[in-house]
Design a protein around this nucleic acid. Structure first.
Length: 804
DNA sequence: AGCACGCCGACT
DNA sequence: GTCGGCGTGCTC
């Protein structure tokens, strides 16, 4: 007897374990761990997809095992490593195992379920059955089937007059095409050509073509027909004569916008060389050591990454490099592809799901040595990894903010252990937790303090916006910033203007009574959307008209507060009519490829000023930029999150690093209402170490990361009282296992407390060592899952990135 | 999640 | 009396 342990595609707590299925004899060889299968599940005829986790030859199950219906994959889609990893991931993130397995794979491999209705035997002519089927043999059940219809269908099914057919669909499909191949060598073909009759002109042309393109085969039949003017009968004849054969190839959908940019490998600085040597030694010695490169902007971290990747590939190993989505720009991608050519796969959000699947397949097939990608690329199915790199390791986007709430850094660490390879974390502004680990020698710290070619650091000035001179100015540009913009433009140099946050941009406020227009469902400020001329909620999409008087006090002094990119753009256009301003924000980059297009445009000096939000601060390198202006440095300081200072420091340091990278001196102007704040002062000096010490002191004082671990648990329910009651119950549960060392905060309502018409309350646990906490949380999850029917949801976020 | 079973009200 | 409402428990 052969039995498979299958994790089924039913994301609930009660089904969050393997179910055993009988492997039919016919499928004995194909049902192996890592393949997807179709199985029956439940009392009805429901069919679903599942993942085979294990195969064994006996079962303790007392009931009757159902057989596996069908195997979806010919070979496993999950390696032993990934199966292992999924157990750890599910435990670590409190997520369902099925969700973990699915996030490791391209989206198209997620099953799609369909239900079709058909008449039961003998009821084909029943009038009610006829009215449902409406003359068709099969009718699909869809989400827009009316309530009434569903009732009728349910009744007919109860009466056994109709049957429901379940269909599991696999969306993944490669484009397969017919192609021409040959088993013969160029020489053979040349010889055979002599046998042809002189008037077989088409055949001669084909033979010549084959000799010429011998190395490129197989080539798609349609391409040969179109481009080389060889017709199908000609190919058929050649096939009959045993010259060529027709094969099926899977065509790779080609991702757009990649131009290899081959550069000479630059000479390393002393610091770079020493970093490369240290890391390469760990590759040689197969040490699963974590390195933290703390390198000032412009110190050449990327070159260090590339050379260690080089080292790994020379040993016939593979390399995984993660970068924030936002810096997955052509600049960065071209640099890697320039060095490693078609051995590179790039996984970014701009890929269509088909393209993503193709890249995944290439990696899985071992056609690829180097993978570059954003967060989810950490699951790339590489074998024999020699090095893992995480650039800009402090970026919050490495943490996924829905289930499974994993941090790519933790997954990378797990894989580095599995493959016995080093993990390199790099940043100019490391996260406090990583830097603290380096302090305790958990990570090996590598400092890079010098900029390449001794480029000086930019000259930074802080502008106090509280000054009379500045507050007297109409608009948001201080005299100093205006003056510097003039000078940069006159010298034909480029400038970057950063607007700190978008949400702040255009909410409506009454200057008489302080009333802020909020969404009736979500408790968040509504934002003005110029294109529709209405107020809109960013959470639920609620829209309403712009009021002319304050709904609270009827004053006419209601108006827009704060500044959006569009507003700044207008001010720039007014004051610098000759300057070409390029705006980059969520609105202008919504379309696929728009982000890259704007960067390219600016790079080509088709614009003088690049205006944008955070996204312009990261990893871009524009040699002609000599001025960076920050309009409102404070807005990240005022967010209600203990990482506010850290975020502000990181952003300002990163953006300052954009100025004056080439041989021109850079200027940075930071406008703020908090000029004495250490995060702003230290960022101005690009002084990470001083900031680190100060921030560590404050974190210690107030008991936050990295001195404490934090876990955030949120409870939601339609009814506010119920949500609150449940969260107090939860708090009691937690305090029963926690020591007096732990700190329990809350329950407190979430800032966006009525998201989707539900009330959210959160509890925060801060702790140093609580051996029982993990187990208790798992238990709470399974206990409350039973109540999810009553509208309760509970979410656990280990080490949350935002607390709002 | 989705389905069956089973226990109570308002109808032929 | 029974049809069908939804609350409960189970799915290899």
């Amino acid at each position: 007897m052969s039995v498979a342990e299958v994790v089924v595609d039913v994301p609930t707590m009660q089904t969050n374990r393997p179910f055993e299925y009988l492997i039919p004899d016919a499928l004995l060889d194909v049902v192996v761990p890592g393949v997807r299968v179709e199985v029956g599940f439940g009392r009805g005829k429901r069919k679903i997809q599942g993942f085979v986790m294990n195969v064994k030859d006996s079962s303790d199950f007392t009931g009757t095992l159902k057989p596996i219906i069908r195997v979806i994959d010919v070979k496993p889609v999950l390696s032993a490593e990934m199966i292992d990893l999924s157990y750890w991931l599910a435990d670590e993130t409190y997520a369902f195992q099925i969700s973990c397995l699915q996030t490791m794979l391209p989206n198209v491999m997620r099953a799609k379920y369909k239900q079709f209705i058909q008449a039961a035997k003998g009821f084909e002519n029943d009038p009610e059955v006829q009215s449902i089927l409406n003359g068709h043999l099969l009718v699909e059940m869809t989400s827009d089937t009316t309530e009434e219809r569903i009732k009728t269908i349910a009744r007919l099914k109860r009466e056994n007059k109709i049957e429901i057919e379940y269909v599991v669909e696999n969306k993944a499909n490669s484009l397969t095409r017919q192609a021409v191949n040959t088993q013969l060598s160029a020489e053979d073909i040349t010889n055979k050509k002599a046998d042809l009759r002189a008037n077989a002109k088409a055949q001669i042309r084909l033979y010549d073509f084959l000799v010429e393109h011998c190395a490129d085969l197989p080539i798609e039949t349609s391409e040969i027909e179109k481009k080389f003017n060889i017709t199908r009968p000609t190919l058929k004849t050649a096939e009959k004569n045993g010259i060529i054969e027709f094969v099926e190839i899977t065509k790779r959908r080609k991702p757009v916008g990649i131009k290899p940019d081959v550069k000479n490998i630059p000479q390393l600085t002393e610091e770079q060389k020493s970093a490369v040597d240290t890391i390469n030694q760990a590759i040689d010695e197969k040490q699963p050591q974590t390195f933290l490169i703390e390198g000032v902007t412009g110190s050449g971290k990327t070159e260090v990454y590339l050379q260690t990747i080089q080292k790994a590939t020379e040993q016939n190993k593979t390399a995984l490099m993660l970068v924030p989505e936002i810096s997955l720009t052509p600049q960065m991608v071209n640099r890697v592809i320039g060095r490693f050519g078609n051995q590179v796969a790039v996984l970014h959000s701009g890929l269509s799901s088909g393209e993503r699947y193709d890249e995944w397949t290439r990696i899985e097939n071992g056609e690829v040595k180097v993978v570059v990608g954003a967060r989810s690329a950490v699951f790339a199915p590489l074998r024999n990894i020699g090095i893992i790199i995480i650039d800009e390791e402090h970026e919050a986007s490495y943490k996924q903010d829905d289930n499974p709430r994993y941090h790519a850094r933790d997954v990378a660490k797990w894989r580095s252990q599995y493959h016995n390879c080093p993990l390199v974390l790099g940043s100019a502004t490391p996260s406090l937790e990583s830097r603290a680990r380096a302090e305790k020698s958990v990570y090996h710290l590598i400092k890079m303090t010098k900029r390449i070619n001794d480029h000086p650091l930019p000259h930074v000035q802080i502008v106090d916006m509280r000054d009379a001179e500045n507050s007297a100015v109409k608009g948001d540009l201080s005299p100093l910033l205006q003056d510097n913009l003039w000078r940069a433009l006159k010298r034909k140099e480029q400038a970057i203007v950063l607007l700190n946050r978008r949400g702040y941009s255009s909410f409506l406020m009454c200057r008489e009574c302080g009333f802020v227009l909020k969404c009736p469902n979500c408790d968040v400020s509504l934002t003005y959307h110029k294109n529709i001329g209405r107020m809109k909620c960013h959470y639920c999409g609620h829209e309403e008209n712009v009021p002319h008087t304050c709904p609270n006090c009827q004053s006419k002094k209601i108006g827009f507060y704060g500044t959006g990119t569009e507003n700044i753009e207008r001010q720039l256009n007014e004051q610098f009519p000759d300057a070409r301003v390029l705006r980059m924000d969520v609105d202008t980059t919504r379309k696929k490829g728009a982000h890259a297009a704007i960067i390219e445009q600016f790079s080509d000096h088709q614009a003088d000023i690049l205006l944008g939000t955070q996204m312009i601060a990261k990893g871009l390198d524009f040699p002609d930029v000599t001025l960076v202006g920050v309009i409102n440095a404070d807005t990240t300081l005022s967010i209600s999150d203990y990482r506010a200072s850290e975020r502000t420091f990181q952003l300002l340091t990163q953006v300052s690093g954009r100025a004056g990278r080439a041989d021109k001196e850079g200027h940075v102007i930071i406008q703020t209402y908090n000029p004495d704040h250490y995060a702003i002062r230290d960022a101005a000096k690009q002084d990470y170490e001083t900031f680190f010490k100060q921030e560590m002191y404050l974190r210690h004082q107030s008991g936050y990361t990295p001195y404490y671990f934090t876990t955030l648990i949120s409870v939601s329910h339609q009814d506010e009282g119920q949500a609150l009651k449940q969260s107090y119950w939860l708090k009691k549960q937690l305090s029963s296992v926690l020591s007096n060392q732990a700190i329990l905060l809350g329950p407190s309502p979430t800032m966006i407390s009525r998201k989707q018409n539900k009330y959210f309350y959160q509890i925060i646990v801060k702790y140093k060592r609580e051996p029982q906490l993990h187990q208790k949380l798992l238990q709470i999850l399974s206990d409350t899952q039973a109540e999810s029917r009553n509208g309760f949801t509970i979410a656990i976020d280990n080490e949350p990135q935002h607390i709002d």
